[in-house]
Design a protein around this nucleic acid. Structure first.
Lengths: 201, 201
DNA sequence: TGTACATCAGTGAACGCGCGTTCACTGATGTAC
DNA sequence: TGTACATCAGTGAACGCGCGTTCACTGATGTAC
């Protein structure tokens, strides 16, 4: 019962996508190539027609994550011109992204992803930096628009915005998705806004 | 060349401590019982004189982490009476703790720790909640002292304080410890303070 | 204080399972003529 | 439009390594008398 033959291009996306999904509910150590293959109706060894190793599959997953993060930044930029609105929109989108791909925050932290090899650690670092750079740029934009305090450090603010989502994402995961991510983001945004906004009460 | 015989009590602490240290530079999947044993001068099978399984060793590590987190809260409470001072002191201590035990933030997120079994996930959840509960209590204290805005949600603020450290800890790790954790904490504290303080401007 | 015995931490060899990876083979797909 | 061939995705059996775990044995430690 051989699976339908599809191009390597398509299979690569399917494999990375399936891996990302499945990493939402288990760790990389727990995720075998056999699991991934089964998910898309292939035999384990078929993976090797498209990737050279399990490591290469993980690299593809990281690449996918990086693209989705940056997509969100772009979408938020398209949505509004006001920097504070853009930041808020980005927050909402990232909450949505985490809900749809619970694996993302965990992968960025994962012992396995980060420790297994230095090259991968560098890859993750690059992704995170690229994302933070875009966010910091939004903050600076707000400073030029005079809606964000001019005296604060844009990089610090960008990292703090990430700090709204990240610990909340853990709690959400730990609680079996009971914790209300969106509500926390809403409330924390209020605090963030109070901290960075240049319009004092 | 048999190792000196020590009591199970002592060995348990040595094993958990060694594991925690070593997890700073590698993932749980990469950390073998053989590695741990070697670190403290034992043979792999000797671990089984003190723990029933690798899982049990990890449980001991989590227990250790939980105690260290709560120790910091207590120390900060002893240090000052002012709630904002206590929160700030706690932030400083947690930065210090992360620097000394880089494994901590990563373990709390680790795919492996969280996914391998549900019981452990529950353990981590308990630890995190206990910690956040104490921090939220400090926030409420500040509200009673009128130094923190009365209208904000204490749990949200507590989680945001964690959000100052956590993403920064990742960046610190990804950058090969180049990123200046303490300086970020300092700057982010300024933002946090502006957000929660009841004394406007 | 000395002796006898039970307990218990440490040892090293061996087992066995899971899983990443390899390999020879198959048959569908697409291209050249 | 039909045929011949090269390419390439999919298969399943087998391999082999790493590592958690077991087990019979040793010898030090502490306690009972």
């Amino acid at each position: 019962m051989a699976a339908k033959k599809l191009s390597t291009e398509i299979r690569k996306e399917q494999i990375a996508g399936a891996a990302l999904e499945m990493l939402g509910s288990r760790g990389i150590g727990e995720l075998s190539l056999a699991d991934i293959a089964q998910r898309i109706g292939l035999v384990p060894s078929a993976i090797y027609r498209h990737f050279e190793s399990k490591d290469e599959v993980l690299d593809a997953v990281l690449d996918l994550i990086g693209r989705r993060l940056l997509n969100n930044v772009e979408a938020s930029q398209a949505e509004s011109g006001d920097a504070l609105q853009r930041l808020r929109g980005l927050l909402v989108r990232q909450v949505q992204l985490v809900r749809e791909n619970p694996a993302i925050p965990r992968i960025m932290f994962s012992d396995d992803v980060l420790s297994r090899n230095e090259k991968r650690k560098a890859t993750v670092y690059t992704i995170v930096r690229a994302y933070l750079k875009e966010v910091a740029e939004l903050v600076r934009q707000g400073q030029r628009q005079k809606v964000i305090r001019g005296d604060l450090d844009a990089d610090t603010a960008a990292l703090l915005l990430l700090g709204i989502i990240q610990p909340a994402a853990v709690l959400w995961h730990l609680s079996g998705r009971q914790f209300d991510l969106a509500q926390h983001a809403e409330q924390a945004w209020g605090l963030f806004h109070a901290a960075v906004s240049s319009s004092e009460k």
